[in-house]
Design a protein around this nucleic acid. Structure first.
Length: 99
DNA sequence: TTGGTGACTCTGC
DNA sequence: TGCAGAGCCACCA
């Protein structure tokens, strides 16, 4: 299992209605490979099984998404996560940590 | 083997 | 408080 696969496994633990961050995933994998997490998400082979739209920036920003930021926001709002001005509303409430 | 790249983060000003 | 630059790390050619 490579780094990307580990990212995907962690991500699948994030329940619907919650989000996590690139930073949290990197820390859970025992490092500071924030950018590598982003790279892994960008190459996500199966967006259906791996909810990469639930990964946001550590400052509550949306970050990016393979199908566009608008699509990412749409998916998040469908799960009950409010997004305003490109940021997660009540970020602390919906944040999922792997600890 | 190595250098470039990127869906980011952190720190200093 | 906001911005810019440096740093980080895995992946790929």
């Amino acid at each position: 299992m490579n780094f990307s696969d580990k990212c995907y496994v962690l991500l699948r633990q994030v329940p619907k209605g919650k989000v996590t961050t690139y930073q949290a995933i990197a820390h859970a994998l025992g490092g500071k490979a924030y950018r590598a997490v982003g790279t892994a998400m960008a190459k996500n082979p199966n967006p259906v099984k791996v909810p990469c739209h639930r990964v946001v920036k550590s400052n509550a920003g949306i970050g990016n998404y393979a199908f566009g930021v608008d699509k990412k926001i749409e998916l998040l709002e469908k799960e009950g996560i409010a997004v305003k001005n490109g940021k997660i509303v009540n970020f602390a409430d919906v944040f999922y940590d792997f600890l």
